[in-house]
């Protein structure tokens, strides 16, 4: 399988090129920031009518992953819905898709800042979840260890012989990993932006998503100085 293997708090993890995190030892799949029904919320709030296919596109990618790995547990690390009203706006076929994904496995919705509280979709709703040495939550916390979170939508920027590459990425160090946004309509925050610098003050590694999971060290120093 095409992935980048690393360990966190003793757990052997795999960063997948899709942006999902796989923990083979316990058959656990984690994804973050699905932002389902974002198009609906954008239309409601700003009047812009984006192509209304984001939820099915996100669910289709998740389905491919789930059917390949057959996880026992799926954790959605928060901001799974663009807001609670959006959670209620999934179309019937999208609801069916989601229900089919949840069938026969432990499905955990972690609360995010966009979707606090429970939605009408099946599965457990938690603020955070501990599994063995790891803790799963939406937003990283100071001083945490073995923490898996999302929220920031980290994105890497690399200059390759004069051409720039911009891709969603995982960021990890010895204490934590921050997942890229999995949702179709999501942007990113530069891997050197101040909030991410604060989370990863020392050496950190990025795993770029795309056709291959590619590990790259997060550049230190200079760019951070240009804040």
């Amino acid at each position: 399988m095409n992935h980048h293997a690393f360990t966190l708090g003793g757990a052997a993890l795999a960063a997948l090129p899709s942006g999902a995190l796989w923990w083979p030892e316990v058959d656990l799949l984690a994804v973050s920031d699905l932002h389902l029904a974002k198009s609906e919320r954008v239309a409601r709030r700003s009047g812009a009518m984006l192509p209304p296919y984001d939820s099915r596109a996100t669910l289709a990618r998740l389905r491919a992953e789930v059917s390949r790995l057959a996880p026992r547990t799926v954790i959605c690390l928060g901001d799974s819905f663009d807001d609670l009203a959006a959670a209620g706006s999934l179309r019937p076929d999208e609801r069916t898709d989601l229900a089919a994904l949840q069938e026969g496995r432990d499905w955990v919705w972690i609360e995010g800042n966009h979707d606090p509280g429970a939605s009408s979709h099946g599965g457990r709703h938690l603020r955070e979840l501990r599994v063995g040495p790891l803790v799963f939550r939406h937003i990283a916390e100071d001083g945490a260890a073995g923490e898996v979170s999302g929220h920031y939508h980290p994105k890497a920027r690399l200059a390759l012989r004069g051409r720039a590459i911009n891709r969603p990425c995982f960021l990890y160090d010895a204490a934590r990993v921050v997942l890229p946004a999995y949702g179709t309509y999501t942007g990113g925050l530069d891997w050197c932006a101040p909030p991410l610098r604060r989370l990863f003050p020392g050496a950190a590694c990025a795993v770029l998503t795309g056709t291959h999971a590619r590990a790259v060290p997060v550049p230190a120093g200079e760019r951070a100085a240009s804040r």
Binding site: H4, A5, F6, T7, L8, Y172, D173, A174, A175, G202, A203, A204, C205, A215, P217
Partner: peptide
């Protein structure tokens, strides 16, 4: 860095 190894925090 060694791909896949744990990161030692500096």
């Amino acid at each position: 860095l060694e791909a896949g190894g744990p990161l030692v925090r500096q």
